[in-house]
Amino acid sequence: MAFKSVKDVPLGPYCHLESTLINKTGEWRNMRPVLDRSKCIRCYICWKFCPDVAIKILPDGNIEHDYEFCKGCGICANECPKKAITMVREE
C-alpha cells in the first residue's frame, strides 16, 4: 500500500493489515539462534514464548526460525529444556 501522494492517502489514519510484514525486523539481529534439530524434542516451548512470532511449526512437526523477523532476543535458547538452540554472533 505504498502511497505516492496526498491523493492516495485515505480520509483518516486507517491502517490495513497489509502489514508490518514489510518490516524485516531480522535486520535488528546481533545474535542468531541456531537449532540443533537432533536435540529438539518438539515441545514447542520456544515457539510459545517467541515475542516476534518468528518460530514456525512446520507441517512435519519440526520447528524453524524465521530469520526475516527474528530479532535475536534469545528467549528461545534460554527456555529450551534440551539446550537445542544456541545463540551465535551474527557476522
Binding site: 508490518t20 525486523t25 512470532v53 526475516e68 535475536g72
Partner: peptide, 8 residues
Amino acid sequence: LSGHMACL
C-alpha cells in the same frame, strides 16, 4: 503478526 516494533 511479526515485524512489529517492540524491543528484543
